[in-house]
Design a protein around this nucleic acid. Structure first.
Length: 827
RNA sequence: GCGAGAGUGGCGGAAUUGGCAGACGCGCUAGACUUAGGAUCUAGUAGGGUAACACCUGUGGGGGUUCGAGUCCCCCCUCUCGCACCA
C-alpha cells in the first residue's frame, strides 16, 4: 500500500477544519500560549520564506497545544500597500479586487500546507472593519498629542510619488524601488515616537528572549547621546544658536560654529551680507545633492563663511560662523560647535579652509600634545590644557564642570539627544488608511467625529500613475465641516501601512469586535505574544513601531501591557545560489511545485530539517528526497505490521524486557522522546528530526534482527510502543501522515491534540556502558563495563587493554576518569 | 571606520558546552531485486596508509592554557549582516 500524500493530506485538512480541531477558546483555564507569525503581504503566491516562517510557527503551536496549552495561533493579511495600486495602474483593476484575489490564492496555499491556524481569528487590513480602527487610534493619538501635523523637510521618492519615513530610506535610496530620495518641504502627519525614545531604549533590556542582534539594532536606531546643549550668542544680534555636543570638555577648543544648510535662521543672518547671493547659491547646491552624495564616505567637506560671528560663551571672543554640508539638520540642533583639534571632521574642515586649531586635551600632563605633531584629531581621553580655569581637569570631570559653569551663566545645560525621528505617517497614495481629518476654512484642522468612522476609500478614484488618486476624487475630497457645517476639504493623504501592522496582533484576539479595536480584557489575557516568528528584515521598523504602539495604547488606557512580544525568533532568509529570491532575478522557488511533487509534510519537514531556523539557507531541493523517503519508510513499516500494532497498542506499558536488544529499544524510545521534546523547546528542529530518523533506523534494525518478535507478546508490545511513539513525536513536523497512521494503528482521537508523550527516566538507564580509553588524550580503545562498576575498578581495567598496553610502556604518571565518559592515562 | 555573527567532508549540517570530530540527511561507489528505473533494499563513504588491522594527519591560519581544545585565551585572515560625517 503506497503512501498517497495528496489524498491523505486533503482528507485531514478537511477533517481538522470540519471539526474545528484548532479552534481557540477564550474561556479556558489552561495556560495560554500566543504563537504569532509575521503576517504576509498578499502579493499572490506563497514563497519559500513564508513556508519556512510558518513551518517554524506551526511546529511550536502544535507542540504547545499537545503539551496542554491553550494556544492562539492566528493568520491574516497585511493587505494595504503599493503593489495593489501599481496593479491598478497597470491592469486597470480595482486595488481591493486585486488584493482580495491575491489573498484567496495565498490562503488556499496556506491551507494546503496544513498549518494549524484558527481561521476565526483573522484580520485583513484592507477592509474598512479593520482600517476604521487605524483611524480611531489615530484620533486617540491626536487627542493625546501623539499625532501632529507639521511642515517638514521630508524624504520624497519621485518614482513612488510619495513621502518616505526615515526608516524607509536605505543608503539614500527608496527601500522599495531603489531610486534616489530627494528632500522636499511638505505639510505632513507625524506620530510622536520620540516621546517614547527613552522607554523604548530602556525596556529593550527587558527583552531577554530576543536575539541580541535585534536588540542592538533597536538601541542603535534610537541612538541616545548624553551631552550638553550650549548657546552661542550671535554678535550684533539678539539671536543665540544652540549646539549639542557630547564633548563639552572641549569647549575651550572651539574655533568656530557650523550650521546645516537647512538651518532656518540662515536667511535672517545673511540678509545684509554682501556675499548673500554666493551663500544662497551654496545652500541651493548643498540641498540639491541627494543624501547619498552628501554622506558618502570620501566626499570632501564643503562650507562657506557667512560673514557673521558668534560669541564664545566663556571667553567672550568672537568666532566665525560657517555653513557646511556635513552638518545635518535632523540631528541635534542642526548646529555644531567646531573643535578641530578633537574632532576629525572639524580637523579636516579647518585644514581645508585654513582655520585655527586649538589643542585643549592632552593624553600626557607632563608632555602636552602639540598641534605640530598632529596628523589627525585627538579624540581619546586626557587632561585639559589651554583651557583657563579648567586646566588640569580630567576630561570626564571637565564635562560636568564646564556644563555647570554654562548653567550658571544661563548659556547651556545638560541635554540628551536621540537619533530617532518622529514617525512620518503621511503617504500620498490611495491604497492605505485615509487619515480621518477635515480641513475647514473657518475651524482649521478638524478630526472626523468617531461616529462618522470609517472614512472609506472611494470607488471613483482614477489610477493614472500620476499624483494621489484621492486628490482627484471629488466624492472623497469634498466634505462638510463637522463643526460649522461649511464646505471643507478632506485630508487626502493615507497612512503608512506600518500603522496597520503595529497593532494587528491585538486585533487577532477579538477580530470581529464592532465597537472597539480590541477587547481590553481579552488583550490582557492573551498578550504579550509568547513567541513571534518572522524575518530579520523587520528587525527595526515593524518591531520598533509595534513596541511604540503598545506603549502609546497603554498610556491612553486601552490595555495594560508594556511590551508586545516576549520571545522573538528571526528566521534566516531562504536564498538561491547565494542571492535573495526575486521575480526580477528569476530565481524564485515555487513551494507549490514541491507540494505537488512531495506533499506538504515532506516540504515543511525538509525545510526544518535542512538548517536551523535562524540560519540562512541556500535553497537546494536535492535533500527533500531524504525526508520524503523517511516518511515513506515509516508508512511501509507500519502497514507491514498493522495488525500486530493494532492488537498490542493498548498493552505497550507492560514491558517485559528480556534481551539486550529489547532493553536497547526500550531505552531509545525514551531518549528519543527526551531529545525531540528538548529540540523543539530550543528550536533545534533539524536535530529533532534527525533523532526521529535514528529512531526509525533502530526500530528497523530491531525488527530485522528479531524477526520472531511478532510471535513474542512482550516483543510485539515493545515494537508497538516504539511505532506509536515515533508517530506521536513526528506529528508536529508532519501532521498529515502521522494523523493518518494514528488512525490506521487503531486510535480514534485526533493525534494533533492528544497529549505529548512524557519520557520515563527509569527506562533510560543502561546496564552496560562504553568508556573511551585514552593515552595522553588520544583514543586507544574502548572499555565495555557494567553501569555500576566502581571507579577504582575502571581505572584498574583500562591499562590492561591490549591496544593500550603498547602505549604505556614508559610508565603511568596518572589516570584521569570522567564519569560515564572516558579514562585518560597520562604517561 | 564602528558594532554583531560566522568559518567543520563533495554539499546541508551534528557534537550532552572542555571529553570518541563529522550524528542525521543529500550526493557518490559497489551490490541485490527488476524488462527498466531518477523506485526500493544492503554495504561503504574526512584525507593518507594497509590485504585487513595498526598507525599518522585533520574543524580558516599562527601561538597559548590543559591530562585532554571544533569548543577557552591572544594575534592574524576571510565572509555575511547592521550602522555609517550622529557633533
Amino acid at each position: 500500500m503506497e503512501y498517497q500524500f495528496s489524498e491523505v493530506e486533503s482528507k485531514w485538512q478537511k477533517k481538522w477544519s470540519d471539526d474545528h480541531v484548532y479552534r481557540t477558546s477564550d474561556d479556558d483555564s489552561r495556560e495560554k500560549f500566543y504563537c504569532l507569525e509575521m503576517y504576509p503581504y498578499p502579493s499572490g503566491k506563497l514563497h519559500m520564506g513564508h513556508v519556512r516562517n510558518y513551518s517554524i510557527g506551526d511546529v511550536l503551536a502544535r507542540f504547545k497545544r499537545r503539551l496542554g496549552f491553550n494556544v492562539l495561533y492566528p493568520m491574516g493579511y497585511d493587505a494595504m500597500g503599493l503593489p495593489a495600486e501599481n496593479a491598478a495602474i497597470k491592469m486597470d483593476i480595482d486595488p481591493e479586487e486585486w488584493t482580495l484575489r491575491c489573498i484567496e490564492i495565498m490562503q488556499k496555499q496556506q491551507k494546503r500546507m496544513g498549518f494549524s491556524y484558527d481561521w476565526e481569528h483573522y484580520v485583513n487590513t484592507c477592509l474598512p472593519d479593520y482600517y476604521r480602527w487605524n483611524q480611531w487610534i489615530f484620533l486617540q493619538f491626536y487627542k493625546n498629542g501623539l499625532a501632529y501635523k507639521k511642515k517638514a523637510s521630508i524624504n520624497w521618492c519621485n518614482s513612488c510619488g510619495t513621502v518616505l519615513a526615515n526608516e524607509q530610506v536605505i543608503d539614500g535610496q527608496c527601500w522599495r524601488c531603489d531610486n534616489n530620495v530627494v528632500e522636499k518641504d511638505l505639510e505632513q502627519w507625524f506620530f510622536n515616537i520620540r516621546k517614547y525614545a527613552d522607554e523604548l531604549l530602556e525596556s529593550t533590556e527587558k527583552l531577554t528572549e530576543w536575539p541580541e542582534q535585534v536588540r542592538l539594532m533597536q538601541r542603535n536606531w534610537i541612538g541616545k547621546s548624553i551631552g550638553t546643549e550650549i548657546h552661542f550668542p550671535i554678535a550684533d544680534s539678539d539671536y543665540s544658536i544652540p549646539a549639542f555636543t557630547t564633548r563639552p570638555d572641549t569647549l575651550m577648543g572651539v574655533c568656530y560654529l557650523v550650521l546645516a544648510p537647512e538651518y532656518p535662521l540662515i536667511p535672517e543672518l545673511i540678509q545684509d551680507s554682501q556675499k548673500k547671493a554666493e551663500i544662497e547659491d551654496f545652500i541651493t547646491r548643498a540641498r540639491r545633492k541627494s543624501k547619498i552624495e552628501r554622506t558618502a564616505e570620501q566626499v570632501e567637506k564643503e562650507g562657506i563663511f557667512i560673514d557673521r560671528y558668534m560669541v564664545h560663551p566663556i571667553t567672550g571672543e568672537n568666532m566665525p560662523v560657517f555653513i557646511a554640508d556635513y552638518v545635518l539638520m535632523d540631528y541635534g540642533t542642526g548646529a555644531v560647535m567646531a573643535v578641530p583639534a578633537h574632532d576629525q571632521r572639524d580637523f579636516e574642515f579647518s585644514k581645508k579652509y585654513d582655520l585655527p586649531i586649538k589643542v585643549v586635551i592632552t593624553p600626557d600632563r607632563k608632555d602636552p600634545l602639540k598641534l605640530e605633531d598632529m596628523k589627525e584629531a585627538y579624540v581619546d581621553p586626557g587632561y585639559l590644557i589651554n583651557s583657563g580655569e579648567f586646566n588640569g581637569l580630567e576630561h570626564m570631570a571637565a564635562k560636568t564642570n564646564i556644563t555647570e559653569k554654562l548653567k550658571e551663566k544661563g548659556l547651556g545645560d545638560f541635554s540628551t539627544t536621540y537619533r530617532i525621528r518622529d514617525w512620518l505617517i503621511s503617504r500620498q497614495r490611495y491604497w492605505g488608511t485615509p487619515i480621518p481629518i477635515i480641513y475647514c476654512g473657518k475651524c482649521g484642522i478638524v478630526p472626523v467625529p468617531e461616529d462618522d468612522l470609517p472614512v472609506i476609500l472611494p470607488k471613483d478614484a482614477k489610477f493614472t500613475g500620476e499624483g494621489n488618486p484621492l486628490e482627484n476624487s471629488p466624492t472623497f475630497k469634498n466634505a462638510i465641516c463637522p463643526v460649522c457645517g461649511s464646505d471643507a476639504r478632506r485630508e487626502t493623504d493615507t497612512m503608512d501601512t506600518f500603522v496597520d501592522s503595529s497593532w494587528y496582533f491585538l486585533r487577532y484576539v477579538s477580530p470581529k469586535l464592532e465597537d472597539k479595536p480590541f477587547d481590553k480584557n481579552l488583550a490582557e489575557k492573551w498578550m504579550p505574544v509568547d513567541h513571534y516568528i518572522g524575518g530579520i528584515t523587520h528587525a527595526i521598523l515593524h518591531l520598533l513601531y509595534s513596541r511604540f504602539f503598545m506603549k502609546a495604547l497603554r498610556d491612553i488606557g486601552l490595555a495594560d501591557i508594556d511590551e508586545p512580544f516576549s520571545r522573538l525568533t528571526t528566521q534566516g532568509m531562504v536564498l538561491k545560489e547565494g542571492e535573495v529570491m526575486s521575480k526580477s532575478k528569476g530565481n524564485v522557488v515555487d513551494p507549490g511545485e514541491l507540494i505537488e511533487t512531495y506533499g506538504a509534510d515532506s516540504t515543511r519537514a525538509f525545510m526544518l530539517f535542512a538548517a536551523p531556523p535562524e540560519k540562512e539557507y541556500d535553497w537546494n531541493d536535492a535533500g527533500i528526497h531524504g525526508v520524503s523517503r523517511f516518511l515513506n519508510r515509516i508508512w511501509t513499516l507500519i502497514h507491514e505490521k498493522k495488525e500486530l500494532i493494532t492488537e498490542y497498542k493498548d498493552k505497550t506499558d507492560s514491558l517485559d524486557l528480556n534481551s539486550k536488544a529489547d532493553k536497547q529499544l526500550a531505552r531509545v524510545i525514551e531518549t528519543t522522546t527526551k531529545h525531540v521534546t528538548e529540540s523543539i523547546d530550543h528550536l533545534h528542529f533539524n536535530t529533532g528530526i534527525a533523532a526521529l530518523m535514528e529512531f526509525l533506523n533502530e526500530i528497523r534494525d530491531f525488527s530485522i534482527e528479531h524477526p520472531e518478535y511478532a510471535d513474542t507478546p512482550s516483543r510485539a508490545s515493545l515494537f508497538a510502543r516504539a511505532m506509536i511513539r515515533l508517530v506521536s513525536l513526528l506529528n508536529p513536523f508532519a501532521p498529515h501522515i502521522t494523523e493518518e497512521l494514528w488512525e490506521h494503528m487503531g486510535f480514534e482521537d485526533y493525534l494533533s491534540v492528544s497529549d505529548w508523550p512524557a519520557y520515563d527516566e527509569s527506562l533510560m538507564k543502561a546496564e552496560e556502558k562504553t568508556i573511551v580509553v585514552q593515552v595522553n588524550g588520544k583514543v586507544r580503545g574502548n572499555l565495555i563495563i557494567p553501569a555500576d562498576l566502581p571507579e577504582e575498578e575502571i581505572k584498574r581495567r583500562a591499562p590492561e587493554l591490549d591496544n593500550v598496553q603498547k602505549f604505556i610502556s614508559g610508565g603511568i604518571k596518572k589516570i584521569i576518569y570522567v564519569k560515564d565518559r572516558l579514562v585518560n592515562i597520562v604517561v
